[in-house]
Amino acid sequence: MKEIFNFTDVEEMYQRCILASIAHAVMVGKYDMLTGEQWWDETNYNFQNFEGIRGVISFSEKDLACVLQNEMIASGEDDMVLLEGADNTTISFVQNEALPYMMSENENSAEIRITALFWSKGKKFYANVEEEQLMKKTDNILLPFLYSFEDAKKYWTDYYEMTDPQSRLVEEIYEKRILSKGKIKLGREIKNQLGKWFEDISNCLESFLEMNIDIEN
């Protein structure tokens, strides 16, 4: 069992997931083909790059677990081998929350195939592979969730080719979401602004609802 990502913690990684999700929720109005790139199912954050790599970060009250799959790597890894050294609470959490999202369908059956995983305990992250190897096997898909806030904001601004007003809106909504753990409601002016930018904002509204963000009609 090896300590990894010692420059960040659970709260920071959660915040980067929220930032990514809000950028996606705003800009999916422009890029509707990216609808399935990111999505939340309660406290499980799913993401993929449409090039065969996907992952889920499952959050509990204090900790998280992340499971990753690279379809370009033919053989999967045994989750119990990758979880060696984890306590029973972590093992149960990974198996019940994160692993089901890695179900792959084939001709005759369904199976769970994973390439890498890591988990947190306290302020530390652990894995049973070296940090460099984990990142390489999953083509650095985790990078936006490991950046500093400013670097992550720049990454998503560039990725979605946001205008300055769009980037400011993302940061405004992000700050409101981070400050509240429960449901939040945004004013009608947000919906009006999205409607000025994009012809169809239904995917935007749906993505916001996944994060417990409602927007007035």
Rank of each mutant, 00 (worst) to 15 (best):
G85C: 05
E77W: 05
V81R: 11
S92K: 15
S60E: 03
E77H: 11
A86K: 05
V94E: 00
N70D: 09
Q95R: 15
E71N: 14
C66Q: 03
I73W: 00
L64S: 11
L64M: 14
E97Q: 13
M72F: 07
A65S: 15
G55Q: 01
S60W: 06
F50V: 11
Q69V: 13
F59L: 08
L68A: 07
I73S: 02
F59S: 03
F50G: 10
E61C: 05
D63W: 01
M80T: 12
K62R: 13
T90L: 00
S75A: 10
S58Q: 07
F59Y: 10
G52Y: 05
E97R: 14
E97T: 08
F59R: 03
D79F: 04
N88A: 13
L64G: 10
E77Y: 07
L68H: 07
S75P: 01
D87K: 13
S75Y: 07
M72L: 14
D63P: 06
N88W: 05
A86V: 08
V81W: 01
D87W: 05
K62I: 03
T89A: 03
L82E: 06
D87M: 05
S58W: 03
L64C: 14
D78V: 15
M72I: 12
I57K: 01
K62D: 09
L83A: 10
L64E: 04
I53G: 01
T89F: 00
M80W: 04
S92M: 09
D63T: 14
M72V: 11
Q69G: 05
S92V: 13
L64A: 08
V94Q: 00
E77S: 13
S60A: 14
F50L: 12
Q95I: 07
Q95E: 04
L68E: 01
A65H: 03
G52C: 09
D79A: 07
M80Y: 06
D78W: 07
S92L: 09
A74G: 13
V67M: 02
G76R: 10
F93N: 02
V67D: 00
A86G: 06
F50Y: 15
F93C: 04
D79T: 10
M72K: 15
E97K: 15
L64K: 13
F93V: 02
V94I: 11
N70E: 04
D87L: 06
Q95Y: 02
I53T: 05
L82H: 10
M72T: 14
A65L: 03
K62W: 02
D79G: 02
S92I: 11
D87V: 13
S75I: 09
G52S: 11
L64T: 14
N88L: 11
T90Y: 00
S75V: 10
N70V: 12
R54A: 08
D63K: 10
I73A: 02
E51P: 06
I91D: 00
Q95D: 02
E71H: 12
V67L: 01
G76W: 05
A86I: 05
E84S: 13
S60D: 12
G52M: 07
S58K: 08
